[in-house]
Amino acid sequence: MSKQDNQWPLWEVFIQSKTGLPYKHAGSVHAPDKEMALQNARDVYTRRSEGTSIWVVLSDNIVASNPDDQEAFFDPANDKVYRHPTFYVMPEGAKHI
């Protein structure tokens, strides 16, 4: 018999460290609703000035790929090195590519 989970719903926390940068997954928090999830995320994950903005998403709303699908999903990319932009000659003087 499985033990009943009486904890609050789980939320995934994403933090943007600087304006313009992508949000990165920081971890998760338990919270009864979205406002509290945001506050808990702020308290738990931004204590050392890690962020300028936070997203919280109910973990249930995240669709994840199945580890069993790993071969079919990701292995075909392994022998297609031409998909990496490494076969171009860098123009002279272009520094920030």
Binding site: W8, V29, H30, A31, N40, D43, V44, R47
Partner: peptide
């Protein structure tokens, strides 16, 4: 009462 609140209160 819960981990998240523990950290909030301590903050």
């Amino acid at each position: 009462p819960i981990l998240e609140e523990d950290i909030a209160t301590t903050n």
